[in-house]
């Protein structure tokens, strides 16, 4: 049995610039059920980031509604956590790793509870030993794990991730993908994951949404017929994986004729 966690209805956003109005989101509709892992892919510059910013309440859309757990979003909603692409601009260099993870809980839960949650989240990402270090003493992949731990500490119902693995190397990337699937299981979260990497979207998700280039609409909604747990080698050689991957890549190429889409689908 599934229940709807997130409903996006006719979402529109237009940036007013000096060069005139620029419509980025042109009526987007989709639902996310509790427990799903939904990836959003699309050609570069298609408004994926704008979409996430409206969903997280950081940006007020110029039209349409977003409903999270039955409440229409007007500001930053409760029960939501966000992991940004640039971990260096989101972890505070003057706070130690543990204090960074604890930060969103300050003034909200008791000290003992904060301690417990910080430890639990850091252990979940395998960084329990790094609590007393500064983030900038860690590698890029580890820093992004700290950012994930901070999101976990908030115990979100919905985790939004904006190309979180785009700035780490390939090996670290697959490690982080598996780690994400593990903690998703452990913390029972619904995840909405923006990426430009088709393979990654299929590998991680239960469903992939593909967007057109701006003005952006949803072009397809592709269920991923793969079971969990997934494995970097076996899953990726599974015929269903290859088939779904090709389908998504084709959709993106159609959405954006020219070289850019081919490049996005190539790796």
């Amino acid at each position: 049995m599934t229940t709807t966690l997130l409903e996006v209805d006719d979402l529109r956003h237009t940036y007013r610039t000096r060069q005139g109005d620029q419509t980025v989101l042109d009526g987007i509709n989709f639902d996310v059920q509790r427990g799903e892992f939904v990836s959003i892919v699309g050609p570069s510059g298609c408004g994926k980031t704008t979409l996430l910013r409206t969903l997280s309440g950081l940006l007020r859309p110029t039209g349409g509604t977003i409903t999270l757990s039955g409440n229409v979003i007007t500001g930053v909603p409760k029960g939501l956590a966000m992991v940004f692409q640039d971990y260096r601009a989101s972890l505070f260099p003057w706070r130690r790793v543990g204090a960074n993870v604890e930060f969103p809980l300050l003034g909200r839960v008791s000290k003992a509870e904060r301690r417990a949650r910080t430890l639990e989240s850091l252990s979940a990402v395998g960084l329990a030993d790094a609590a007393d270090k500064y983030a900038w003493q860690l590698s890029g992949g580890m820093q992004q794990r700290v950012a994930i731990a901070r999101a976990l500490a908030m115990r979100p119902e919905l985790l939004l991730m904006d190309e979180p693995f785009a700035s780490v190397d390939a090996q670290t990337r697959s490690d982080l993908e598996d780690l994400l699937l593990r903690v998703r299981e452990q913390f029972d979260m619904t995840i909405l994951f923006v990426t430009h990497d088709v393979d990654e979207s299929v590998y991680l998700s239960t469903r992939v949404l593909s967007l057109s280039k701006a003005p952006t609409v949803k072009t397809a909604d592709v269920p991923v017929p793969l079971t969990f747990p997934r494995d970097q080698i076996h899953t990726r050689e599974n015929p269903s994986f290859v088939e779904t991957r090709s389908e998504v890549a084709r959709l993106i190429r159609q959405a954006s004729p020219g070289g850019l889409a081919a490049a996005a689908g190539a790796h």
Binding site: G57, V76, M82, F84, A89, F92
Partner: peptide, 11 residues
């Protein structure tokens, strides 16, 4: 990024 982190954490 720092400010958005604080905002999404509802600080």
């Amino acid at each position: 990024g720092y400010l958005e982190t604080a905002r999404t954490a509802k600080v």
